[in-house]
Design a protein around this nucleic acid. Structure first.
Lengths: 267, 267
DNA sequence: CAGTGGTCTAGACCACTGG
DNA sequence: CAGTGGTCTAGACCACTGC
């Protein structure tokens, strides 16, 4: 750590201790070393240097690479693990989190059966009802921070548990980052969508925000979910974000809550 | 730290390094020092040694008291702060979190106006519609882990924002921990309920779980929220827990979502 | 200026995994 | 057994607060 036998090509870090306040910029935004390390690790995740499911270098290796102590790397990784971007496994290493693992299959889906646990109803059935390319309307353009006229992929699907349709979803994806994704491909794909995005398009959903309302089922809702017209449904609008906090997916879900409920924990 | 000039009355800590696995108990549940410290701090919070809003001893003081290094105390406090039980303020100290502060006034309420931020509609108006002592029914008994026949306090109130009734809530509290709380007292109290619980009954809500459904407004709902019969409403059943993970409150809320929505972030 | 939490380091040792 | 993450320590110094 002391000897200057540099061999990595990492950018030099700013030792925060040397930051000087001037009258022009009174708040120089002090940033601790571990935050800078965190940023560098994030950069490697973004660039795809380490892919979902893979292990990243050991703490000692990273410490050497960034020329800081293990403790500093550790604190950076701690935060990334707390944000569910990395996964630590004692004795094995640190891994890039992924939506492909069984364990976190439905991390973003908060709807659970009233009795039993998720999965107790058997595997989810996914039926694509409709899928097409189209121009984003004003709503979608705003939600996904697109430019007006941009192309989007739109899909409508029904999720069934134990043979009963429970969720109707409309999904919008910006066409550009998902170049090569056809309506057909989506329609025929079985399995978790977010896993497909990771493996095929290097797009990783990291965080999501949901707005939840109660609405009455329209004719279309009623037909697809097989409930009477006007049945109260949970309307769940989700925007999912990637590493760089870019909105990458808009999803409008309509949940039946006669046998399921949205479960939330508040700390 | 080395010299045995003990003067505190703290229990001895188990050095985990000395834990031995036997064939009878193959997994002796290794518990790191900082977890034990965390438990001791939690104990002091539970017992009321440090009350909400007050500062706890400095890290150095606690390190001396528990005869561990500052770093170990630090890690314990870090976790408690992450769980919102403590609040760190650089240069000032570490404080016991409280519901009384303006900043965290509505920490458990996830309903926000569609436009603007919470508070932009002016202060909330709380109207107690009904309040009485009664015997817990089967539902409430189970939710609050009571014994059958136990007495509970029940209240029904309406929350209005900007003069418009938005939330109807039914609240159940076990009578025992809230000894001395009368229906009248509750009805006349203005301000956040959880703050009252803290200051008057040393009951601190720390965590909550919510089950959310969509329902149609009944006649009673419709009248109190001034919406047409059958209007879709968000039904939010909340169970709030104290330090020791005891369920302490059952709350059934009915939210109008024509001008507000339930906002949730998923990490 | 003293006292608090926040950062960083270096080193020792422990717990867990897999070959 | 080597390699990984996890714990614990001791000490130095920095950033922030309030007197």
């Amino acid at each position: 750590m002391q000897t200057p036998n540099d061999l990595g090509a990492e950018p030099d870090l700013i030792q925060p201790q040397t930051v000087i306040a001037t009258s022009a910029s009174p708040a120089p935004a002090f940033s601790p070393l571990y935050q800078q390390i965190k940023g560098l690790i994030l950069g490697s995740l973004r660039s795809g240097e380490w892919k979902p499911g893979e292990s990243i270098p050991s703490e000692m290796d990273l410490a050497a690479r960034f020329r800081v102590s293990q403790g500093t790397v550790r604190k950076a990784i701690d935060e990334l693990a707390a944000e569910n971007l990395l996964l630590r496994r004692q004795g094995k290493g640190t891994f890039v989190a992924t939506h492909a693992e069984q364990q976190v299959q439905f991390r973003f889906l908060k709807l659970v059966p009233d009795s039993g646990t998720r999965g107790s109803e058997g595997p989810a059935q996914r039926d694509i009802v409709e899928c097409r390319r189209t121009r984003a309307n004003a709503d979608v353009t705003r939600a996904l921070a697109l430019r007006s006229g941009d192309t989007v992929l739109q899909a409508r699907r029904v999720l069934s548990f134990g043979g009963i349709p429970v969720i109707l979803e409309d999904i919008w994806l910006p066409a550009a980052p998902f170049k090569g994704l056809t309506a057909e491909r989506l329609a025929n794909y079985q399995g978790p969508m977010y896993a497909l995005f990771e493996t095929e398009f290097n797009v990783r959903m990291v965080r999501a925000e949901e707005k939840i309302r109660a609405i009455a089922a329209s004719e279309a809702h009623a037909a697809l979910l097989r409930v009477p017209l006007g049945t109260p449904l949970l309307s769940v609008e989700r925007i999912a974000y990637t590493y760089q906090d870019e909105p990458m997916e808009l999803r409008r879900g309509y949940y039946r809550t006669d046998t399921h409920h949205y479960h939330n924990v508040i700390n």
